[in-house]
Design a protein around this nucleic acid. Structure first.
Length: 229
DNA sequence: CACCAGGGTGGTT
DNA sequence: AACCACCATGGT
């Protein structure tokens, strides 16, 4: 079972260790959605630059964005990378929202309905859909990303139980509020940046008071020690 | 030059 | 439902 990790406790430790992250930095719900697509496989720094470029062109609006040329979009969002793919996907996403009468037009949908509709769009998978649900619609969902899987894997004694489907339900059951889930995911990302992806166990992979610490770390066995000297 | 970033898709088990 | 290989770019 995934009960190996107590998510509510982990959440409190991460909060104490890193402080509130105040996600999602954006001026509107639509901007959050746009950012969620643009940040795929990129740093927030680069995605934010693309969002600002769109703002400068007055395109942070479903209607305007849905009729912008693919060429213009590609040029504007270039800093976010993968622009040849993201441009048409971004426009289709804007068209979907515009067709619903704006972001508010989707508020009436149930979380699972909205999730299905988002995932049906090209370029939006489970992660981006959940990010949109959580940060633009304040729905109580847990985002299973690489950071979460890696962190949980290192905290849990039985990695085999850490499956996406199980986690999505288990974490929400232990931490039901969208407010906390918002902060939890942001903290996991923040913590993820401080740990290392290749060394199975290093001191920074730990969470204060909740995990294996320096005592059972055998850095010498690991072939890579790039991130930590 | 290598590696990474707030993944997605399509095809398999 | 989970896993896999492959894909696509800018930054450091």
């Amino acid at each position: 079972m995934a009960g190996d990790v107590q998510f509510a406790l982990l959440y409190r430790r991460l909060l104490a260790q890193h402080g509130a992250q105040h996600w999602w930095p954006a001026a509107s719900r639509f901007e959050i959605i746009v950012g969620a697509l643009l940040v795929q496989r990129t740093t927030w720094h680069n995605a934010a630059a693309a969002v600002e470029a769109l703002r400068g062109a007055d395109l942070l609006d479903p209607g305007a964005l849905s009729v912008a040329s693919e060429w213009q979009l590609g040029r504007l969002i270039k800093p976010a990378g993968f622009h040849s793919r993201k441009a048409p996907r971004l426009r289709a996403l804007a068209a979907y929202i515009d067709g619903a009468g704006g972001v508010e037009g989707l508020d009436g949908l149930s979380t699972s309905e909205l999730r299905d509709q988002l995932i049906a769009l090209d370029g939006i998978g489970a992660e981006t859909a959940d990010a949109i649900l959580l940060y633009a619609f304040e729905r109580a969902v847990f985002i299973v990303d690489a950071y979460a899987l890696r962190l949980f894997d290192r905290l849990s004694g039985s990695p085999a139980s850490l499956k996406p489907g199980i986690l999505r339900s288990t974490v929400v059951a232990q931490l039901p509020g969208s407010r906390d889930l918002n902060e939890f995911h942001a903290l996991i990302v923040a913590h993820g940046k401080t740990i290392c992806r290749r060394i199975p166990r290093c001191e920074r992979c730990s969470v204060q008071g909740l995990c294996r610490t320096a005592a059972d770390i055998d850095v010498g066995r690991h072939p890579y020690r790039k991130t930590h000297a």
